[in-house]
Design a protein around this nucleic acid. Structure first.
Lengths: 228, 228
DNA sequence: CCAAAAGTGTTAACGCTACACCCATGT
DNA sequence: ACATGGGTGTAGCGTTAACACTTTTGG
């Protein structure tokens, strides 16, 4: 009987699968995520994570890439699956489960193009997040936790930085995400000891002060490394 | 047009959502996972992870609990979501995405009941895993990684142990999972320093040797802690 | 010459690793 | 008395954290 139930019910399954992306970037030293403003009722005018339904025959990972590209025009970013949110009640319109993804991109002064299905798109300071549609608050919070973990224990920071950067810029990324001041000397010692980055000869001349040496990541393959 | 595609295609969506559980336990010092033997073609006789489709209106987390209970009779175990496998080609019969879950249980000499829809159920040494149906090899491998990480950085080990245990038993769980010998004195020092367990007065009399002091976990709330 | 950010070393506390012998029990 | 697993401490080493001044540039 247990088996019967398990077999009968699900054949009536009518579930849709959506992908929602939590896209992080750093803008002038602060952590931002990408939000869209919805047209669809009952969430009209509310902000939400950019997302969409997967297509028949489309791998979920591919769908995430496609949706990211539709909404930002960008494709060369770090993207990984985050979590699947599957409460039956999470979408007032019907059964939709959301496979959430987590994206990191350098701040590219990108022109955001608003899609027809949305009123608007913007980068929003993570600290100042408005109330979001659906369970997107929860998804965003979860993504932030993952981000904190990831920058402490892996080398993914590269995906938030331009190809060349100064050590101060690198440190500022950590401070923006962890919300904490780090000691400059200790930070530099640790980062350099990890052997993940190397100095390129050139220096950045920016403003009335000593120019900073520029660095780049030796590799952009993900590695597990204790950074902080 | 991009929008049109995104709206049209998915409305034809016909996707099913399954839950697959990777259930770990330790049996006589070795890591095991629970496998079922399939009847369904084209995987007849092959071993696979226990799983099933979610029901309409059922939270995915609830479905995982239900399926776990159907297949083991047990409900008081540690269970968390692992990853969602969503390749379009992963099921030869149609579009099925699999939300995998990760379970830990103490070895309870549990009688396994084989469901009608399977030929058999058994605990299988993780080292001796046979080829599994679908992409279940990949899922099991992923779960093992998560397990290694979890026991090193959190206090979830409690969910693999009986309520009372000796320090040697605890150490053996670590060794079984990490596949590595640990130093007895250092292990004890660290574990005790973490303040997660406490000695209950009693001792275990087992065999012709000095009896071991028994311990229990002070709390079974999950915490992030560097253990090893 | 002043402002602004870049760059650079040392010390003390702590934690980790490696390592070997005695203890309590049953037979 | 012997076999079996339980239980215990220390010293050396490497890692981390705290801390302040000098350098280079533009204006």
């Amino acid at each position: 009987m247990v088996q019967n139930k398990a077999k009968k019910h699900p054949s009536k399954q009518s579930v849709k699968v959506a992908v929602d992306n939590v896209i992080f970037t750093i803008i002038s030293g602060e952590l931002h995520i990408l939000l869209i403003q919805m047209k669809k009722k009952p969430y009209t005018n509310l902000w939400a994570l950019p997302g969409g339904l997967i297509r028949t025959g489309e791998d979920i990972d591919k769908a995430a890439v496609r949706i990211l590209k539709e909404e930002t025009g960008v494709s060369d970013v770090y993207l990984e699956q985050l979590y699947t949110f599957g409460k039956a009640s999470r979408d007032p319109f019907g059964r939709v489960i959301s496979v959430s993804y987590f994206a990191l991109m350098p701040n590219s002064e990108m022109k955001l193009r608003t899609l027809k299905r949305y009123f608007d798109v913007k980068w929003c300071k993570f600290k100042d997040l408005p109330k979001l549609a659906y369970d997107h608050d929860e998804i965003a919070k979860y993504a932030k936790q993952r981000l904190e973990w990831k920058i402490e224990y892996t080398n993914v920071v590269w995906s938030l930085l331009p190809s060349h950067f100064s050590l101060t810029e690198l440190q500022e990324v950590y401070e923006a995400i962890l919300g904490d001041q780090l000691d400059k000397r200790n930070f530099r010692k640790k980062i350099l000891a990890l052997n993940l980055i190397e100095s390129i000869g050139t220096k950045a001349m920016r403003g009335a002060h000593r120019p900073a040496a520029l660095y780049r990541f030796k590799t952009k393959k993900q590695r597990i490394v204790e950074i902080l």
